[in-house]
């Protein structure tokens, strides 16, 4: 795993299934990792170029929505090579009631958003002691 070379992947533009985005500019679907531990679900999303000011993490009607806006400054000079496009990011996830929705926290560092979704008490596996008698 450690010596594996990174494969490149082109950014995928957001194509909404119903309705259309009314936001200005180009939106991409960020790459995410979601993993689960005993107590929580953790979501990591790559949002390069997004500052804390441009980030919105919303929870509404069981949908967790991530919007990361980048400021596209008009760059001077001539473009010699353009392998990637810049733009904002959008993605949403359905959050079930297995998550304690009031305790969700989020942090952003080096272009990576980390959302921690603690499991609701009822979803935490409990070990049931068995007594012999």
């Amino acid at each position: 795993m450690a010596d594996q070379e990174i494969e490149i992947s082109q950014k995928q533009e957001v194509t909404p299934e119903k309705g259309e985005l009314t936001y200005e500019g180009v939106y991409f679907t960020p790459a995410v990792d979601i993993y689960e531990t005993e107590k929580e679900l953790v979501l990591l999303a790559d949002l390069p170029g997004v500052e804390a000011d441009g980030l919105e993490v919303d929870l509404k009607d069981d949908y967790l929505t991530i919007v990361g806006r980048t400021t596209s400054a008009q760059e001077e000079g001539e473009s010699l090579l353009e392998e990637y496009r810049t733009g904002s990011y959008f993605r949403n996830f359905l959050v079930t009631d297995a998550v304690d929705q009031s305790a969700i926290t989020a942090s952003l560092a080096d272009g990576v958003l980390k959302v921690t979704l603690p499991k609701a008490a009822k979803a935490i596996p409990r070990k049931i002691p068995i007594t012999s008698g």
Partner: peptide, 17 residues
């Protein structure tokens, strides 16, 4: 290193370049 974590999605590439 999330020890004992199970992944639901793994889209973020890691490795050397």
């Amino acid at each position: 290193a999330a020890v004992g974590a199970s992944y639901h999605r793994r889209e973020r590439a890691t490795g050397i370049f």
